[in-house]
């Protein structure tokens, strides 16, 4: 079998311990639920808290990531401000890929939620967003996206060339180029029967971006309605691009 490119091997090593992440988030949410009746969060509020805690893990991952750790904090912040919601959405999507059930959603806590329950309880916009994510899951499933490709795509999301005013633009470009080359090499070598898998994956990434932009707008709208718990990383990131 062909080799796995060095970049991808390194990224695989940097993947967080899922059980640890899950345990931390579950503990945090249980603490929320232990509060008095008047302080307790709504279901939506809990989902926001869950996303907020997942973001913490994403930042932890980015911090230790190759190339990223070479950047100054200012540039690190710009990259994450650009892609935080994409990384959240992609994390959700990959979880569903592994979960492998069209009719239910697997949360980072390990809880499984039926699509019918989401349809019944979530507003129409949120329901639409979740359905669109499920569609993307199906597309990626038919493309046979594997873990090696997942970590590479995650890295490509982080090192987006869309970000302006970077101090070390050259390093970001180098990271992008290396990751693209690795993904091309990997897909061509391991899926020779799957014509153009590299380009197909990048097309799906664009869809992840579009979906995450919609999700951000939805969340911002909910925030303006006072429904999103405040003073947390999620709200900060939401505000970062909206001056």
């Amino acid at each position: 079998p062909p080799d796995i490119p060095e970049v991808i091997l390194k990224l695989l090593q940097l993947e967080p311990d899922e059980a640890q992440v899950k345990g931390r988030i579950v503990a945090c949410l249980q603490q929320e639920q232990g509060k008095g009746r008047h302080e307790r969060l709504s279901t939506f509020g809990l989902m926001c808290k869950m996303a907020d805690q997942t973001l913490f893990s994403i930042v932890e991952w980015a911090r230790s990531c190759i190339f990223f750790k070479e950047l100054e904090v200012g540039d690190q912040m710009k990259l994450l401000q650009n892609c935080w919601s994409e990384l959240l959405v992609f994390d959700h999507i990959y979880r569903q890929l592994q979960h492998g059930k069209e009719q239910s959603v697997l949360l980072v806590t390990g809880q499984e939620v039926d699509m019918s329950a989401i349809a019944a309880q979530a507003g129409s916009i949120l329901n639409t967003l979740v359905l669109r994510a499920q569609e993307l899951v199906l597309h990626l499933h038919s493309l046979q996206v594997d873990r090696q490709e997942f970590v590479c795509l995650k890295f490509l999301i982080l090192f987006s060339l869309d970000v302006k005013y970077l101090e070390n633009h050259a390093l970001v470009r180098e990271a992008q180029e290396k990751a693209n080359a690795a993904l091309l090499e990997y897909t061509a070598g391991h899926y020779p029967h799957c014509a153009d898998k590299f380009r197909q994956l990048l097309l799906r990434l664009a869809e992840v971006r579009a979906l995450s932009m919609q999700a951000e707008e939805y969340l911002y709208h909910k925030h303006l309605s006072g429904e999103v718990p405040c003073n947390n990383l999620l709200i900060e990131m939401l505000h970062a691009k909206r001056t």
């Binding site: 913490f56 930042v59 932890e60 911090r63 904090v73 690190q76 912040m77 994450l80 401000q81 947390n232 990383l233 900060e236 990131m237 505000h239 970062a240 909206r242 001056t243």
Partner: peptide, 18 residues
């Protein structure tokens, strides 16, 4: 003040003593 992203900066800057 809302958008100086202080928490993100702190998370990126902090020292891990592992």
């Amino acid at each position: 003040k809302k958008n100086n992203n202080a928490l993100l900066r702190y998370l990126l800057d902090k020292d891990d003593t592992k």
